[in-house]
Amino acid sequence: MNESALSRVSRSLDLIPYLMLHPGSSIDELAKVFNTSTVLISQDLSLLHMCGLPGYSHLELIDINYEDPNFIEVSEPQVLDLPRKLSRQEGISLALGLDLLQAVATDPTACAKINSLKERISQSLGESELHVSIAAEDTLISQFSELIMEAITSQRSILMKYVAMSSDVVTEREVLPTQIEYLRGYGYLHAWDHAKAQMRTFRMDHILDAQLGSAHIGSPRETLTQSQPTGEEEATGFETSALQTIVLEVQAMRFVEEHQGIIDSQERLGDELWVRIRPVNEEWLLRALLTLPGKVLIQENPRLQALFSEMISQALFGYDVGSQ
């Protein structure tokens, strides 16, 4: 509740034009849009009710009706009817979002339109340069992005060949895509898997082939959008083990950064990283640990440590160097 005066001023100045555009909004709606509590919105409205042009007679004050929390309206905004120009962060959020849309858009007309909007937003900020950018990321763009987006918009399934990394098995599946998500540099497809009758997450760079399938094969759309994607399908959803404590060397910190979805907690002790990993597929975990630079120790789980040692020896045997 200890909010600065400036935050209140900023929000209050934006409340009036918002209410002019959305008369009859409820306090709850306003709290949601302005990402704050209903108590603070009520206080803002009371505050605005006391403000106005010098003179401060009833003709000069902002006239705002907020007695009914479900119906707020402004009958006299004075001069605050105008939406304020975008703040730096607001402009950056939109401009970078447009940057990303432009990166994944394949239609040249759409690209040009998005680019023009981006320029208009930068100009509205009065900045020649935003000093914030998205570097073109090849990993974001899968060769199947366009096809999948078409499937999402037309609610059609796709038939795809997918290689699951942990089992190293190629499967052919018919799925109904619902969303593409980019997480820490990788693209993930969330889709309803018709054969398994459940929502699944697929790493887009593991799709070997895809083509458009039939129209709408399965579950209603409203069910599909309820999933909470984690971007860690390979790590979850199979047999699980308990929370594991793993000791890594600091040079393996990239693994920790890229798998925040399965990290319960982490602590740096000198050159070691002590990481608590949530229950995950054991096979996935051991293979992932094998790829890391530096030492890896699995604490408090001799069985898993033994499996890991066996895996290391097995791999070394392939190089004819044995385990010593």
Binding site: Y18, V33, F34, E90, G91, S93, L94, G97
Partner: peptide
Amino acid sequence: TLTYAGTRALAKID
């Protein structure tokens, strides 16, 4: 940060 900034921006732009 950016979600909030985006929501505020859209509230201004309608």
